[in-house]
Amino acid sequence: MLRSLLYVPGSSPRFLEKAHERGADAIIIDLEDAVAANEKDAARAALARTVPMVGQRGAAVIVRINTHDETTMLADASAACEAGALALYIPKVSSPEVLHQLDRHLEPLESAANRPPMRFAPLIEDPAGLLNATSIATGPRVFALSAGGEDLATSMGAQPTPEVLRIPKLMIHYAAKAAGVLSFGLLRSTADYADKTALAAAISEAKDFGFDGATCIHPSVVSLLNDGFAPSAEELDRARRLIAAADAAAQAGIGAFTFEGKFVDLPIVTRARALIARSSG
């Protein structure tokens, strides 16, 4: 499970050195918005050191690259690949073409390094990307989709309120689920990380909708994400009991049955099995 994905500025030694202590399932080393223009080259060059450093306790290491120009994009991707990062977070993806370009660029580098192929998590941040979400989700190497709420609202001349972001984020979420890839996000902007009560409610809502996890920009949110997106002990216990009842019913030649006062049929059993599988995956 990738429940929590913590952004860390690629130009901040203080945050990078402590990132592995935060308990996040994944660390996203950010070369894009969190890094000043005059520090981007140094942050990229440092990946050879920072990628293994932030991943030393087993967190998946992902690099958010720049896509504002081709030269910088490919240089960022090359450095992330050579440093051993698992995946790229690719901002401002409006169509699958950029994914195909990166795929072609990385293949010979991966072959020369004898390393597994990197995976892609496109960030959809404008209306064109939103309307192309289905084709982006089925692009090469994609393992997850996410919405960039602040940029998406800005590109529409809108405010990043829950009402504005809800439908676009759900559209991207549905595209991810249709393609069988992970879906990261909350149905609101994550810029206000201080309101823990509102964040906990948003995480619970996102879990109900089937989101797999979410990114955060502050370490204090990591535990909320880990707890909120993980199945609770009560949920797991009930799922195991339901599966046992379903297996017994199947042995007796019974399809639908009643479990703890509620009607149960195949979709409900399938959901319980999926819950168990996610918790042990």
Rank of each mutant, 00 (worst) to 15 (best):
L182H: 12
Y174W: 07
A83C: 03
A153P: 02
T161C: 11
A153S: 11
D151L: 12
P160A: 15
P168I: 15
L99F: 14
S95K: 08
P168S: 09
A87L: 09
I90S: 05
K169Q: 13
S95A: 15
E110A: 11
E82R: 11
E97W: 08
N132V: 02
L106K: 06
Y193L: 03
C81H: 11
A87G: 14
Q159S: 15
A83R: 15
E125M: 05
A128M: 05
D126F: 05
H173E: 02
P108L: 08
E97S: 14
T134D: 06
L86N: 05
L130Y: 12
M156P: 00
A175F: 01
P96H: 10
I167K: 10
E125K: 02
T134N: 03
I167Q: 08
H100D: 09
G180S: 09
P140C: 07
N132H: 13
G185Y: 03
T154G: 12
D195V: 07
G149M: 06
D126P: 00
E97L: 14
P116R: 07
M118W: 02
F184W: 14
I172Y: 06
T138A: 07
V93P: 03
Y89Q: 15
A85H: 11
P168W: 08
A121L: 07
R141Y: 11
H173G: 13
E125S: 14
G157I: 10
A128Y: 00
I124T: 00
L102K: 10
L88V: 08
H173I: 02
V93Y: 02
P140T: 00
R166N: 14
G185E: 09
S111R: 06
L131K: 01
S111M: 13
I172M: 13
A175R: 10
V93T: 15
L165P: 03
R104H: 15
L109M: 07
M171T: 06
T138L: 01
I172G: 06
I167L: 15
K177E: 10
R104F: 10
Q101Y: 00
